[in-house]
Design a protein around this nucleic acid. Sequence first.
DNA 1: GTACCCTGTAACGTATCAGGTGTCAAAGCG
DNA 2: CGCTTTGACACCTGATACGTTACAGGGTAC
Lengths: 95, 95
Amino acid sequence: MLMHNPPHPGEVLRELCLEPLGLTVTAAAEALGVSRKTLSAVLNGKAGISPEMAVRLSIAFDTSAESWLNQQSQYELWHAEQHRKELNVKKLVAA
Amino acid sequence: MLMHNPPHPGEVLRELCLEPLGLTVTAAAEALGVSRKTLSAVLNGKAGISPEMAVRLSIAFDTSAESWLNQQSQYELWHAEQHRKELNVKKLVAA
DNA sequence: GTACCCTGTAACGTATCAGGTGTCAAAGCG
DNA sequence: CGCTTTGACACCTGATACGTTACAGGGTAC
């Protein structure tokens, strides 16, 4: 299982896509077809990477949409696991 | 890429977890700690598998939360890909 | 027929969240 | 000093996950 808090996918996005290309948030947002705020929110961890956003990233940066979505899933899953004991779930099959 | 419409993860859940164990929706919902309506919505494709639900499933059925979440991601991604051409995204790196 | 259980679903309210528009502070440039 | 650009924030909207309650329909047992 994941032991440590994974970084926001937006953090990875900034380091792996924007910075290497010297792209500003405004320029990247325009290319992606979203508002500056929307991209800004993603980059700062205020919003996740939606399936639609993953497709946008895959087109603009010629990457895999799945990888972005998987990163997002792992991030959300890690946070959900932190509340595992409060879920009050009964086991239906033996562990 | 995915060529065909993937099934709702809820459909898989019903066939792989509920039916083999002879579980009713009511019984499974109670064990999972959610309302019958919530589980029913998932099973019938009216709702997706949330990260929290994935953790619930992993506990109750001793399965991988990741696999459920990945199925959900693939499902959402396939639908998002269907609108790829309407997104108006500019390529920032060569394909 | 009557009673009971299981199911799906509609209506209502809650919380969360992606996204857009508008505004504002800070930094760069004439 | 102005002025543009950039990036972050506040507010509103639409969608969704979840809960409760209630209803209609199909079984099955009595």
